[in-house]
Nucleic acid binder design. Structure first.
Lengths: 222, 222
DNA sequence: CTGATATCTTACCCACCGGTAAGAAAAAAA
DNA sequence: TTTTTTTCTTACCGGTGGGTAAGATATCAG
């Protein structure tokens, strides 16, 4: 099972020899930190945990990162990068506001099943210093504003029923963000299944359309 | 503004004198612990924080509770109690599955704006010992199963469009649980506003129904 | 081969946290 | 008052975690 070793070697092996290759070692730290962070949360993940899993000692980590916060902030930035990619993709791909929301939900749900993506929403602002917190808040507001603008666009173009876009955005974002709380990579639900049904449920709702055999809907122009 | 002092005195004053009144003192501990827990999360909330806010010293707390986990678990139980109340209320109040889900969302959203309710979803299982974790998981599964049963009921009675009830329940529960992450008691959004729009959005979706002045829907029995 | 540089380890510091031991001070019971 | 019980404080312990100092070891440039 030899993958492309130059791209994604097992993080454990990145520190196997002391060849000078800071980039891949940094990457290895980030990957295992993200993994551990998801397993244990920021507060319970110690620098020793990270070091142990990489078969090195704690001080070695400080050769590549300033401190614990620095590591997790970097994971966070990678995750945000994934999200911003999909946001830009949606802006181009024109359509109704509703279609944009649907595309957003589908893509965002998928990102929430990727480790770095999950880190974004698992990171508690309370664990950060005020500088880092400010940065994180900026990202979050950007994403929230974007979703809200899609909803408002939909209301304007008639594809979305009038509503408070702020609350609607919180509702959708909440459902999506919570994915990282229950999703298990080896679980029964595949990312694709989740993304598809989320996109459907969050835009169309649960309610059955009146198209049963007993009832028929007729649209009449006036 | 004198409230009923026998019911809810300021937690700070509960320990003002040493009169023997364990019940209200316990309650005061729980309230401030819940408050602090919401402000700082379990890991960053120290027993000293709680004691300081009550104007006592740390060991005094151990007169009323066995340990830190015991305190938060008690807060958790109070919150779960609130949720189970609404669940039972909905079971009686008969109606379609969709109506039950709607009622659930409305009530649950409201509970998520009450401190003890918020504690339920902010409590990270990873912070607990295995015994407590087992208890917590039991409660959560009970709630999840209940919501899922409402959805399945709705699919059976035709009020809800066929879907994977598991994913749908995760979606709805996620939106609701996430409320405790952004809700601020003194913020712009009132609990009632939130509950009402959540109930609407999560059941009906965002999509505009074709009921504009240009179109009219007619239901015809066959 | 040699000196310079990057990499990593051993040993340590300090702050904090959950929890306890032992006893003082107040309140209730006698 | 005296005794007993509850309530609360001072002082402390063991463990852990982030982070650093200082030096050993390997890699690389020349």
């Amino acid at each position: 099972m030899p993958k492309d070793a130059s791209v994604s070697p097992s993080p454990r092996k990145a520190f196997a020899d002391r060849r000078r290759d800071p980039a891949t070692k940094r990457e290895a730290v980030l990957k295992t930190a993200a993994q551990l962070f998801l397993e244990k949360s920021y507060g319970r993940m110690s620098m020793n945990d990270v070091a142990d899993r990489l078969n090195i000692t704690k001080p070695a980590l400080y050769h590549y990162f300033d401190n614990k916060e620095d590591i997790l902030l970097e994971c966070y930035r990678l995750g945000v990068g994934l999200i911003e990619e999909i946001l830009n993709g949606i802006a181009d791909h024109c359509g109704t506001g509703l279609q944009k929301v649907e595309a957003f939900v589908h893509s965002y749900a998928t990102v929430m099943t990727v480790n770095f993506g999950r880190c974004v929403m698992r990171l508690d602002e309370g664990d950060l210093t005020s500088d880092a917190r400010a940065e994180v808040r900026t990202y979050k507001r950007k994403i929230d504003r974007r979703l809200r603008s899609f909803i408002e666009e939909g209301i304007a173009d008639g594809s979305i029923a009038p509503c408070d876009s702020k609350i609607a955005a919180f509702s959708i974002a909440g459902a999506l963000n919570w994915i990282c709380m229950w999703y298990e990579p080896d679980g029964a639900l595949s990312p694709e299944e989740i993304a598809t049904q989320f996109a459907r449920t969050l835009t169309q709702g649960l309610v059955a359309r009146k198209r049963s055999s007993r009832l028929r809907v007729v649209f009449k122009e006036e």
